[in-house]
């Protein structure tokens, strides 16, 4: 596939997301307020923020798993009104059905409206993409956590979603596996174009993967009630794959960590004599 035709297919398959003035309350407690965000077709956006700030809640709203108290979400041209076939979500836990083989678990993700012979091919293609072809016949209990998350990713992609929603998909994995999964996700993004919204608490992960990093949280001014909204949007410079040790990223990393309320002890780079 040439790079220009790849871009064409991104333009046709990936969908934009538009969030306008979204608010969500659980009973008396307001979690999100006035969240507005425009996400372009094929963009990778990372949502970061302190735990409990409503990152996952926002993601669930985009997927139609939750309905906003106020505001609206649009995918492509049409608003999100409920569970939406245009998006697919991969949860923090792999959530595989233990009685099904990996192949049959990926099949769960296929669109239910049309089932064709080509679907079988598509499932084996996806298992190949996540490098699980040889384990396709295994049951979930026979595989590692990283493998299970790859199955979960393949299942989400089976829907050919315009928007792929990832809720801390690598959070429970060990550090090395997580790095490998991040690279795999970028490969998948190239092979199976979709707009990706990823929730993470890992600033490095956000900077490595995303075009833009969105910092959610309550502003320090009204810290009394912890209502979250978009506090900052950072455009990550450069092109993927990024140098994990880049100096530009180190500066952004320090900024974001400070935005999260973490002291970084970051010293400006000075030329030593």
């Amino acid at each position: 596939m040439s790079s220009s035709s790849l871009r064409d297919s991104i333009a046709s398959d990936a969908l934009s997301v538009s969030i306008r003035g979204l608010a969500r309350s659980f009973g008396e407690r307001r979690v999100l307020n006035d969240v507005s965000l425009e996400i372009a077709q094929g963009e990778i956006v990372a949502l970061i923020g302190p735990s409990g700030c409503g990152k996952s809640t926002l993601l669930r709203h985009i997927g139609g798993l939750d309905t906003p108290t106020a505001g609206s979400i649009t995918i492509g041209d049409a608003p999100v009104t409920g569970l939406d076939a245009r998006s697919a979500i991969a949860f923090q836990e792999p959530r595989l059905l233990p009685w099904r083989s990996l192949t049959r678990n990926v099949e769960v993700g296929l669109p239910r409206t049309r089932r064709a012979a080509s679907d079988r091919e598509r499932v084996s293609h996806l298992l190949e993409l996540v490098k699980l072809s040889e384990s396709a016949h295994l049951r979930p209990r026979e595989i590692s956590g990283g493998m299970a998350q790859r199955v979960s990713l393949a299942r989400a992609l089976a829907r050919q979603p315009g928007v792929l929603l990832l809720d801390e998909p690598f959070g429970a994995l060990d550090a090395l596996t997580r790095l490998a999964m991040q690279d795999l996700l970028l490969e998948l993004h190239a092979a199976e174009p979709a707009t990706i919204v990823i929730v993470t608490h890992d600033v490095d992960e956000a900077l490595y993967l995303a075009d833009r990093v969105v910092l959610l949280g309550s502003s320090p001014a009204d810290s009394a009630d912890a209502v979250s909204s978009v506090r900052a949007t950072v455009t990550v410079p450069g092109h993927r794959p990024r140098d994990r040790g880049s100096a530009d990223l180190a500066v952004l990393r320090a900024e974001l960590l400070e935005g999260l309320g973490v002291a970084t002890h970051h010293l400006p780079v000075t030329s030593s004599s």
Binding site: E128, I143, G146, L176, E187, A191
Partner: peptide, 14 residues
Amino acid sequence: MSLSSPLSVLERPV
């Protein structure tokens, strides 16, 4: 598919 990644080395069926 000519994608390469360290994944296959890192992880094996349990």
